[in-house]
């Protein structure tokens, strides 16, 4: 075992995670959630056109590989004159992807809030949108934390695909050192270990968040 190589490469790989993987996943997740909320609201709007657009969007995102979506944005768009740098390309592709997956989670969470909560909001005089914002979404958020946390953790791992469009992130750092040293097994296992560490920390954070949100729920 080449302990020196491990010691030398560990920090650059972690740094690739902290400076590349996590910001990429975090930014895409936040934008993706905003898209997802919009799509979910279109789906439950009762308006056939909006609902149809939402359904089509979800179908396309879920029915095509993430890698293909990434390549369409980075390699495909330049051929119609739209050149986007690697980082923003990755953010666009991952955001759109999260938007498709999280939309169904958010929609299900909104529908899981009992109808009586809407009616209670209305009887105290609130409009639909205010009831949604103040009464329904906070309760839906509680329900959707576990599945959305899983979406985020998956996203952190999926961002390794961005190495294929030359984004500097965790896996690309490992690849570079592997190519340079020819220690492929060692470096890729090391990358796996760092991903695992990141995901374990995130899963712990998920637990803490769920416990906090549990305060007002009866058991």
């Amino acid at each position: 075992m080449d302990w020196d190589l491990i010691a030398e490469s560990f920090w650059p790989i972690v740094l690739g995670g902290l400076r590349g993987t996590l910001p990429l996943a975090g930014t895409s997740f936040v934008i993706g959630l905003a898209i997802a909320l919009g799509i979910a609201l279109m789906r439950i709007s009762g308006n056939r056109l909006l609902s149809g657009i939402g359904r089509a969007y979800i179908s396309v995102v879920r029915g095509t590989p993430l890698l293909v979506q990434l390549f369409v944005v980075f390699y495909g768009l330049p051929s119609i004159g739209v050149v986007v740098d690697p980082w923003p390309s990755a953010v666009v592709a991952f955001s759109l992807n999260v938007g498709g997956y999280a939309a169904e989670v958010i929609r299900a969470a909104i529908l899981s809030v009992p109808k009586g909560q809407w009616e209670a909001g209305w009887t105290v005089g609130m409009s639909r949108s205010r009831t949604l914002r103040r009464i329904i979404l906070p309760q839906a958020a509680r329900v959707s934390v576990p599945p959305l946390s899983n979406t985020f953790i998956s996203l952190v791992k999926d961002t390794s695909l961005a190495s294929l469009i030359l984004v500097t992130e965790l896996f690309r750092e490992a690849q570079k050192i592997a190519a340079f040293s020819s220690e492929f097994m060692l470096l890729y296992l090391e990358a796996a270990l760092v991903y695992w560490l990141f995901c374990t920390v995130l899963a712990t954070g998920q637990d803490v968040l769920e416990k906090r949100l549990d305060r007002y729920v009866a058991h």
Partner: peptide, 13 residues
């Protein structure tokens, strides 16, 4: 008017 519901429908959060 204001309604008092059978199952109270208080806001749990």
């Amino acid at each position: 008017s204001a309604m008092v519901f059978q199952h109270h429908n208080l806001f749990p959060h």
